[in-house]
């Protein structure tokens, strides 16, 4: 007697993909809806923000019609969605520049920072978490927990200011605020083709290694700072996931087979830890993409966080909403990516 295996999993996989795409579309529509509603409920009159307080009745009415605000709400929403789908996120009141254009300049700066920070967070946090999990109660475990707790509880702006003061002001080891030294700023503008908008990638593609090094010296402190925060979270979660996996019976099996401890931990347990850890890393990455406003402010980083904050200060709602939509889309896409990776590492989810 031999039990037989289920048929090819491809059909199921395709169905899963279809469901994922449908939920992606629904989520994006929901995102636009919420953003739209927020734009309508905040006590900022978009007409007044454009024409100013001394405009005549006729001017106000004309602008209202031009913005489509005289139409019923559901129609306004359809127009908003239609425009967004065509890449039109409106025009900034403050600068008169299409929001998408400004955002596509600011977003790569944030993306570069958040990506490097996440890489740092993963490279430091995963081994730290594993170390702590394999020696619970040891000195290493306590150190990892303490360092993590500090990352959790110290305000980022304070760490940022102290970091700047120490490493830039006193020691002079790193570049200061901004993405490049002033001398390189102009050069970058004229001599480097902006392929990705991320300085490290663009300067490397252009072979401008002097600029590349300078960009790193500016990036390393804010990225290290955010990486620390992300490391605190990732190491904590890794520790708890790893402890859980090491208690499972298949770990004993691997040991019974005579496998060395490094293989038991880094192959057998780690593959299982990755399943929930992917979601954690994606969440932390998404958090950095949307939430590094304070860091961007302190380091004069011309990223999306600064852009939205500046826009909010002057009631520039189209810019705020446009920026919000882009952050939301990044969040949703990241979720989709982590979902796909999850399926890749966990055969049971396929």
């Amino acid at each position: 007697m031999t039990a037989s295996l289920p048929s090819s999993p491809w059909a199921g996989r395709l169905r899963g993909l279809g469901a994922a795409l449908f939920s992606l579309a629904a989520t994006l529509l929901g995102l636009l809806f919420v953003t739209f509603i927020i734009g309508r409920v905040v006590p900022i009159d978009p007409v007044l923000a454009i024409v100013g307080e001394r405009a005549t009745e006729a001017q106000i009415a004309a602008t209202r019609t031009a913005l489509g605000l005289d139409q019923p709400l559901w129609q306004q929403f359809l127009i908003f969605v239609g425009n967004a789908l065509q890449g039109d996120l409106g025009t900034s009141i403050r600068t008169g520049e299409p929001v998408l254009q400004a955002v596509s300049r600011a977003f790569p700066a944030t993306l570069e920072l958040a990506t490097l920070a996440t890489i740092i967070g993963v490279l430091a946090g995963v081994p730290a978490g594993v170390l702590a999990a394999t020696r619970p109660g040891s000195l290493a475990d306590h150190i990892v927990r303490l360092v993590g707790l500090m990352g959790y509880s110290m305000p980022v702006f304070w760490l940022g200011l102290i970091g700047l003061l120490l490493f830039y002001g006193v020691l002079g080891w790193v570049g200061g605020p901004g993405r490049l030294d002033a001398a390189f700023d102009m050069m970058y503008e004229f001599e480097v083709t902006p392929v990705s908008g991320m300085i490290l990638i663009d300067t490397a593609l252009a072979g401008r290694w002097d600029m590349f090094v300078n960009a790193i010296s500016h990036l390393i402190l804010p990225a290290g700072l955010l990486g620390y925060v992300s490391m605190a979270y990732i190491s904590r979660m890794t520790r708890s996931f790893m402890m859980n996996e090491l208690g499972q019976e298949y770990i004993t099996t691997a040991r019974v087979k005579g496998m060395p401890e490094w293989r038991v931990i880094w192959v057998h347990a780690m593959r299982n830890v990755l399943v929930p850890l992917i979601t954690v890393i994606a969440l932390s990455y998404a958090y950095l993409l949307e939430g590094s406003v304070l860091t961007e402010t302190i380091f004069a980083w011309p990223g999306l966080g600064s852009y939205i904050t500046d826009a909010l200060m002057v009631n520039d709602m189209p810019a705020v909403l446009g920026g919000t939509v882009v952050v939301g889309v990044a969040f949703v896409l990241l979720n989709l990516l982590s979902d796909l990776l999850y399926r890749l590492v966990d055969p049971r989810a396929r």
């Binding site: 019976e249 298949y250 004993t252 019974v256 005579g258 057998h268 299982n272 399943v275 049971r348």
Partner: peptide, 30 residues
């Protein structure tokens, strides 16, 4: 000694096999 000299079969294969590794990879590991 573990593996080539002394081995052990455990109670429930649902828990004693690594859920995210192919059966072949687990069999061939040693």
């Amino acid at each position: 000694l573990r593996g080539p000299r002394i081995a052990m079969v455990m109670q429930d294969p649902k828990y004693s096999l690594n859920p995210v590794m192919k059966v072949g990879d687990q069999l061939m590991e040693g």
